[in-house]
Amino acid sequence: MPVLKKQITEAMKAAMRAKDKVQLGTIRLILAEIKRIEVDERIELDDERVIATLDKMSKQRKDSISQFDKADRTDLADIERQELEVIKTYLPHPLNADEVNMALEEAIATTGASSMQDMGKLMAELKPKVQGRTDMGMLSKLVKERLTR
């Protein structure tokens, strides 16, 4: 069993013992999503795919929070915020702007990317290194800016 998946399963047991309903509910959502993907694709997810799944769930929560805030539904936004905090505990340490720029420069040096035609190649190099650690939309904008200079 991958390390991260095992860690999440152990956290679920601890949340059950502590009777922490928010944490338990969110962990069950995480494990259900992981299980759904494993059943659909008939594979066992490695840590990289688990992080990608958590990143996707995190993004969904952020989108929901903004929608609920716009609709003045603070009660629902608060629930999403609590779930987001639990999900964040299993994501790797986020990268700061300098670390993202450094990873971008390394990827450019590795791939030799020099124009927008190389964006796919560059993103393929970057994605495994920064998935779950930075906003991929922001990274895409940085890559476009860098390649159009």
Results as ranks from 00 to 15, higher is better:
4 L>C: 05
4 L>P: 13
5 K>F: 14
8 I>S: 08
13 K>C: 08
16 M>S: 10
17 R>G: 06
21 K>W: 10
21 K>F: 11
24 L>T: 08
26 T>L: 04
30 I>M: 15
32 A>I: 08
37 I>D: 07
44 E>W: 02
47 D>F: 03
50 V>C: 10
52 A>C: 01
57 M>K: 04
57 M>V: 04
58 S>A: 07
58 S>F: 06
62 K>E: 15
66 S>C: 03
66 S>K: 11
67 Q>K: 06
67 Q>S: 06
68 F>M: 11
70 K>F: 09
71 A>I: 00
72 D>H: 04
81 R>A: 13
81 R>Q: 12
82 Q>P: 06
85 E>H: 11
86 V>S: 07
93 H>G: 03
96 N>M: 00
97 A>S: 13
99 E>T: 03
100 V>P: 02
101 N>K: 09
104 L>R: 01
105 E>A: 14
105 E>F: 07
105 E>Y: 04
109 A>F: 05
111 T>R: 04
113 A>R: 03
115 S>I: 09
121 K>T: 14
121 K>V: 10
121 K>Q: 08
122 L>A: 05
124 A>Q: 11
124 A>R: 09
125 E>G: 01
126 L>C: 05
128 P>G: 00
131 Q>C: 12
139 L>S: 02
140 S>E: 13
143 V>R: 00
144 K>M: 15
